[in-house]
C-alpha cells in the first residue's frame, strides 16, 4: 500500500483536459452521423421496402451482434488490405466511422420503436390533409418520435463518449491514449487512470444536466 501522488494527479488534469476536445469531437461527429443513419434505417424498417429491408436487417444484426472493438479493428487494420483506397484513413476517421455504424444499429431499433409509438391518429390526420409519406414522416411523426426516443438516445450518446476511448487502440491519442502515455512514463498507472476515469465521469454528469433540459424542451408541447 502506498499513498496516492496527489500532486502528480493535479498536474495531470490540464494535460488530459487538452484531449477532451478530440474526445468530444469524435463523440459528437459519431452521434450526428449515427442519428442520421439510424433515422434512415428506422424509417426503412417501418416502411419495409422490399429487398432493401433484408439488407437493413442484416446490417443491424451484424453491428449489434459484434463487439465495437472488433469492428474498429476490422475497419482500421482489416479493410485497407482488401480495399486499397482506404489506406489513407486515419485513426480518428476510422473511429468515427466505427462508432457511427455500431451505434446507428442500436439507435435504429429505438427510433423504430418510437415511430411505432406515435399515435395512429397522427398518421391518419397527416394523410387526410394530403401529405406525402415523406412530409408525414419528417414533419409529424419523427418530431414526436424524437420525444419518445430522447432518453434512450442520450444513453447511447453517453455510451458513445466512453466508446471513443477505444480509438486509443487505433493509435489515436485522445483522453485515454494520453493517460496511457503519461502512465508509461511515470509508472503511476493508478493515478493516471483514476484521473481519466473521473474526467469521463464529469463529462457524462455535465451531459446528464443537458438531458433534463432537452427532455423539458421536447415535452413542452405535451404539458397540460
Amino acid at each position: 500500500m502506498r499513498a496516492l501522488d496527489l500532486d502528480y494527479m493535479l498536474g495531470l488534469v490540464p494535460v488530459i483536459l487538452g484531449y477532451v476536445p478530440l474526445t468530444l469531437f469524435m463523440a459528437v461527429a459519431g452521434m450526428v452521423f449515427a442519428l442520421i443513419l439510424a433515422s434512415l434505417l428506422a424509417v426503412e424498417r417501418v416502411a419495409k421496402v422490399p429487398v432493401l429491408d433484408w439488407f437493413v436487417v442484416l446490417f443491424i444484426s451484424f453491428f449489434r451482434g459484434t463487439p465495437l472493438l472488433v469492428q474498429l479493428f476490422l475497419f482500421y487494420f482489416g479493410l485497407p488490405q482488401v480495399l486499397s483506397f482506404l489506406t489513407q484513413i486515419d485513426g480518428v476517421t476510422a473511429a468515427i466511422m466505427g462508432l457511427t455504424l455500431h451505434f446507428s444499429a442500436y439507435m435504429a431499433e429505438s427510433i423504430r420503436a418510437a415511430i411505432m409509438g406515435v399515435d395512429r391518429s397522427q398518421w391518419e390526420a397527416a394523410q387526410s390533409i394530403g401529405m406525402t409519406q415523406g412530409q408525414l414522416m419528417w414533419r409529424i411523426i419523427l418530431p414526436q418520435a424524437a420525444r419518445i426516443a430522447a432518453p434512450t438516445l442520450v444513453n447511447y450518446f453517453i455510451d458513445m463518449i466512453k466508446g471513443t476511448s477505444l480509438a486509443f487502440t487505433l493509435g489515436v491519442t485522445e483522453m485515454m491514449g494520453a493517460a496511457q502515455k503519461e502512465a508509461a512514463g511515470s509508472f503511476l498507472y493508478f493515478e493516471a487512470f483514476l484521473v481519466v476515469a473521473v474526467m469521463y465521469w464529469a463529462i457524462v454528469e455535465v451531459l446528464s444536466q443537458g438531458q433534463k433540459r432537452l427532455e423539458t424542451h421536447l415535452n413542452k408541447a405535451f404539458v397540460r
Binding site: D119, E124, Q127, S128, F222
Partner: peptide, 22 residues
C-alpha cells in the same frame, strides 16, 4: 390517392390534432 385527399378534409372523432404543433 393524394389527389383525392387534397379535395377532401376530414374531422376525426378523436380530434387527431398534430400533437407537436400549436
Amino acid at each position: 390517392v393524394l389527389a383525392l385527399r387534397r379535395r377532401t378534409a376530414m374531422v376525426f372523432q378523436n380530434y387527431a390534432l398534430f400533437a407537436n404543433k400549436t
